[in-house]
């Protein structure tokens, strides 16, 4: 489903290679962890996988289509419809309610607000945070916010979910609940999951664990 071949990337022409020959293949329903210490380029790799950044060298393929062949606008559309994102701090839109945050990808894709909110409500209920729908992001806890972020990532049935340190700001008990919320629906829904993390608890819940070392991915 998602395939990356010999990716190389650096931020400036004369800078160091942050990603240097990384390759990866993820199947539908498979959960993969990318581990590595801070500053090794895990987040940059996720941005390359979703087409937010274009690699200097190498290719990213999603279901037979090469991402770099598309315009920026088309890649935005692909991100919107085929990917789901979970960030370390949720990165929910603070001024929207929880329900509106989850409905956002659907509304951005052109779905009517009523339909988008109905599906968002279902997704929130499925993850056990339905009662927070009318609250603002600042009015819920970090763990709840992360589960809302997962609901937002899954509401539009994406092909791939990318998660960047989803438990980085949470305690152990909350982390377990968040991992469960993240892994179960993706695997059940036949969605590929790629998680960048340095948390071994997260890594243990994945099907495969890759380690990013010197810009390259290696099996652990």
């Amino acid at each position: 489903m998602l395939r990356a071949l010999d990716l190389r990337f650096r931020y400036r022409d004369d800078g160091l290679w942050v990603v240097d020959g990384a390759s990866l293949a993820v199947k539908p329903g498979e959960a993969v962890a990318i581990m590595g210490p801070s500053g090794t380029g895990k987040t940059t790799l996720l941005h390359l996988l979703c087409g937010l950044f274009l690699p200097v060298e190498g290719e990213v393929w999603l279901q037979g289509a090469q991402l770099s062949a598309f315009s920026d606008r088309a890649r935005s559309r692909i991100r919107l419809e085929r990917f789901g994102f979970v960030f370390q701090f949720g990165e929910l839109v603070p001024e929207l309610t929880v329900l509106e945050n989850v409905a956002l990808p659907l509304m951005l894709a052109g779905r009517p607000r009523r339909e988008a909110e109905r599906r968002a409500r279902d997704q929130l209920d499925a993850l056990g945070v339905g009662r927070y729908g009318s609250r603002r992001v600042a009015e819920i806890s970090g763990g709840e916010a992360q589960r809302v972020a997962i609901a937002r990532a899954l509401v539009h049935d994406p092909d791939v979910v990318l998660a960047d340190e989803p438990t980085g700001a949470l305690d152990e008990a909350t982390s377990e609940r968040v991992i469960e919320s993240l892994v179960d629906p993706t695997v059940r829904g036949n969605t590929a999951l790629v998680v960048a993390t340095h948390d071994s608890l997260v890594a243990e819940a994945m099907d495969r664990v890759l380690v990013l070392v010197d810009g390259m991915l290696k099996e652990r």
């Binding site: 937010l52 994102f85 990165e91 839109v93 956002l104």
Partner: peptide, 8 residues
């Protein structure tokens, strides 16, 4: 967040 999730 909006840019990342693909907001045009």
């Amino acid at each position: 967040a909006l840019v990342a999730i693909g907001a045009p």
